[in-house]
């Protein structure tokens, strides 16, 4: 379990990193916290020819409060976000999800954007980013573009990130007034990838449920409020639409059942928080 050979560049600036990645194209990868990429390198599932380390780039290490959003640079570790004093005020859903991301020993290294880039369909951060309708800023050399989370995640570890591009930051919309948030997850053990994870956002007009661990990417749907008579049917349709599959850890049916149960529970909790 040793990585195949690669070159390593510790970038001093965003432009240096972006330039090197653009030049390397498909064969280049960003390494930040390494918590997703390094296992794949050790197992030789991935064999990039160049790793660009962005952890020395100061401007990527910032959590910035903007008008309606919180912008998190590609170098921000999960532990840093978890310790940020504005977290529970501005991003209560992220605050609820972060303790479920791996373990303290991996959050201390892993980055928020790294988890987004890896696009594991069971991962919590892509899920809450999708639930909150967040965005991802992608950079290719000096060009940047912003993609919404729902357009970014394309499938199993597949994203809209193009060869030569890197994630510069992600932005989470700030908590809106009279909106409630809730997060629920069932995994086999503490800290495991989710069998089913639910992120719920409820405001006066709508209830939004995002589900991870079931489809090949985080899926989100607007549902009637849980008090409504057609809620159960709508949630059931969503559960089926996720196209669950049997695997080692859980049957497809079990996942659908959890979607129905956790889905209801999380939306109800979000509705309570709003009140």
């Amino acid at each position: 379990m040793k990585p195949a050979p690669f070159d390593y560049l510790k970038a001093d600036s965003l432009s240096e990193a972006a330039e090197a990645l653009a030049e390397a194209g498909e064969d280049g990868r960003v390494i930040a916290g390494g918590q997703s990429l390094m296992p794949m390198l050790n197992m030789r599932l991935a064999k990039p020819s160049l790793l660009v380390d962005i952890m020395g780039v100061d401007e990527l290490g910032r959590i910035a409060e903007e008008k309606d959003t919180i912008r998190i640079g590609a170098g921000v570790r999960q532990a840093k976000l978890q310790a940020w004093d504005g977290l529970s005020r501005h991003l209560p859903l992220v605050a609820a999800a972060l303790p479920w991301v791996g373990h303290a020993q991996t959050r201390s290294r892993g980055t928020v954007c790294g988890s987004v880039a890896h696009a594991d369909p069971s991962a919590e951060l892509p899920l809450v980013l999708t639930a909150l309708k967040g965005g991802i800023v992608l950079r290719a050399r000096r060009r940047t573009r912003t993609v919404s989370a729902s357009d970014f995640f394309l499938g199993m570890m597949a994203t809209d990130l193009k060869p030569g591009e890197m994630i510069e930051s992600v932005s989470f919309p700030k908590a809106a007034p009279s909106t409630g948030y809730a997060f629920r997850e069932i995994g086999r053990r503490h800290g495991d990838f989710a069998i089913v994870a639910c992120a719920a956002v409820v405001d006066a007009s709508e209830a939004r449920l995002a589900v991870g661990g079931v489809a090949d990417r985080p899926m989100v749907r607007t549902l009637p409020l849980p008090v409504s008579g057609d809620f159960d049917d709508a949630l059931n349709e969503f559960a089926w639409a996720l196209n669950a599959r049997d695997d080692l850890h859980a049957s497809a049916r079990y996942r659908r059942e959890l979607v129905r149960r956790l889905g209801r529970q999380s939306l109800e909790e979000a509705a309570r928080c709003r009140a």
Partner: peptide
Amino acid sequence: ALARSCLTL
């Protein structure tokens, strides 16, 4: 900060 040294170069 805590780190898995097997996931660190």
